[in-house]
């Protein structure tokens, strides 16, 4: 099964991060990605710029509507994701627990709806 980890964290807390801490975090993510690759379950990942840079677009109301800002203006914002291949939820949760993002935020684990 394919699982996606949606990484949420408090953005305002990111303002006080020192360059050293940023480097540490980057190294932790690099190590994590390598571990996923070594286990042969890595599919994709991305690390996103803050939600202040987000733009939304919709045709839902019949016309094209573009707006500045994230979809939901909440304190906890999605800041990245991982997609992995795992046999079951428990295995996916084990890997989500190891994700560096789980230490300072929350990792939402969702199974893919697409047929394998």
């Amino acid at each position: 099964m394919r699982y996606t980890f949606l990484l949420y964290r408090n953005e305002s807390a990111m303002d006080n991060v020192t360059p050293e801490q940023m480097n540490e975090a980057r190294a932790a993510f690099v190590g994590y990605i390598q571990a996923l690759k070594d286990a042969d379950i890595f599919l994709a990942t991305d690390w996103l710029l803050p939600s202040s840079t987000a733009t939304t677009i919709t045709l839902r109301d019949g016309s094209r509507r573009i707006q500045d800002g994230p979809y939901a203006d909440t304190k906890e914002q999605m800041g990245g994701y991982f997609a992995i291949e795992a046999p079951d939820l428990d295995t996916a949760l084990e890997w989500a627990e190891k994700c560096p993002a789980a230490r300072y935020g929350v990792v939402e684990v969702r199974a893919s709806a697409m047929p394998a």
Partner: peptide
């Protein structure tokens, strides 16, 4: 849908 396995938890859990 979430793929909860029908297996016994390992010793740590």
């Amino acid at each position: 849908d979430a793929g909860i396995a029908f297996s016994l938890p390992d010793q740590s859990q």
